[in-house]
């Protein structure tokens, strides 16, 4: 691809995305599309800590759950509308992300992965068992969706899918700016070699903490949208398996690439909807896919594309450090 094509590609993708809800055959597909956008936001979030900083965080679904439950509980228990609940959910996820990141990031490599796995499980178990707050297994029902902003209403499926798309575009813009910022450069240096980055005087911890916080905030955003769109929320939304699914989205699309996780989400989530008939074989295929990807195509689809096209920003394969 020439530079001009590279610049035009995102606009073309956006045009397709804008047209899609109008051409898909029915409401069901619009809903899948909307869910796809929401999960893609979460995948972009995981990509910030995993792809940019090279740290395997397995607590991601926990932050998704925190964002979702904040929106759901504020709306159903306190009567705070979605539009106020969503920023609160993002903020709370970010605060938890900052606090948890400050502690977990002191552990490195495998230890970080195991530590965050435990933290993710603790968040999930607390959500599941704290019945007086979260209603445990029963979950939260009747969560009001996004209300009207002036003349804009979000009651139809199509309007909601555009809202989700807008959130995804904002996410992509924000993550791309983060990647090009000094913090982003530091993160890339950390991913290549943490000791080296520290040795040249970069504040490694601050950059990693920033990435973790942003990653948690994006998971919170996705969770909040999810709760508002579905109208029902159970503890399984924060299950570790959600983290694994998100990991698969990132891996398929291309770890460390900006738009890879979005493509990965649509391919995997789209397939999982199309393959509903094969429901029970789905995880067999996905588990195998994860192993095969890491063995033969560790930088995903984006990596396969990149090999044939030089690009200004060229993040390398995951965690080349160590």
């Amino acid at each position: 691809m020439t530079p001009r094509v590279t610049r035009a590609a995102p606009l073309a993708a956006l045009a397709v995305a804008l047209a899609l809800p109008l051409v898909v055959p029915n409401e069901y597909y619009v809903q899948i599309l909307t869910q796809g956008y929401v999960f893609a936001i979460s995948a972009c979030g995981l990509n910030v800590i995993l792809g940019f900083a090279g740290q395997l965080s397995l607590a991601h679904a926990g932050f998704f759950g925190i964002g979702a439950y904040t929106v759901a509980l504020l709306a159903t228990k306190v009567g705070i509308a979605f539009w106020a609940g969503l920023p609160a959910g993002i903020a709370l996820s970010a605060v938890f992300g900052f606090a948890i990141g400050s502690i977990c990031l002191r552990s490195k490599g495998h230890y970080f992965a195991i530590f965050t796995l435990a933290v993710g499980l603790i968040i999930h178990l607390v959500i599941q068992k704290w019945e007086s707050l979260t209603h445990g297994h029963i979950g939260v029902i009747g969560i009001p969706g996004p209300g009207a902003i002036g003349p804009l209403t979000f009651d139809s499926g199509i309007a909601r899918s555009y809202l989700a798309l807008a959130a995804l575009v904002l996410t992509l813009v924000a993550t791309s700016r983060l990647l090009r910022s000094p913090v982003g450069r530091t993160l890339m240096a950390v991913r290549e070699s943490e000791p080296l980055a520290a040795a040249v005087g970069l504040d490694v911890m601050a950059a990693k903490r920033m990435a973790f916080t942003v990653s948690a905030a994006l998971a919170g955003l996705a969770g909040g949208l999810y709760a508002g769109f579905i109208g029902f929320l159970g503890p399984e939304a924060s299950n570790v398996e959600v983290t694994f699914n998100t990991l698969l989205y990132v891996m398929v699309g291309g770890i460390g690439s900006l738009s890879g996780p979005v493509a990965g989400t649509f391919i995997v989530y789209g397939l999982s909807q199309v393959l509903q008939v094969l429901q029970e074989y789905q995880m067999v295929i996905f588990g195998l896919a994860l192993v095969l990807l890491i063995l033969f195509m560790p930088s995903g689809l984006a990596g396969a594309f990149r090999r044939s096209s030089p690009q200004a920003l060229k993040p390398s394969s995951p965690g080349r450090g160590k």
Binding site: L56, H110, A113, G287, L290, L295, P298, P318
Partner: peptide, 17 residues
């Protein structure tokens, strides 16, 4: 390979099994 890769592979094996 980077240590990230074997961890992700282990997760894949887990889901598969």
């Amino acid at each position: 390979a980077p240590h990230l890769n074997s961890m992700i592979a282990a997760l894949g094996v887990m889901l598969f099994l």
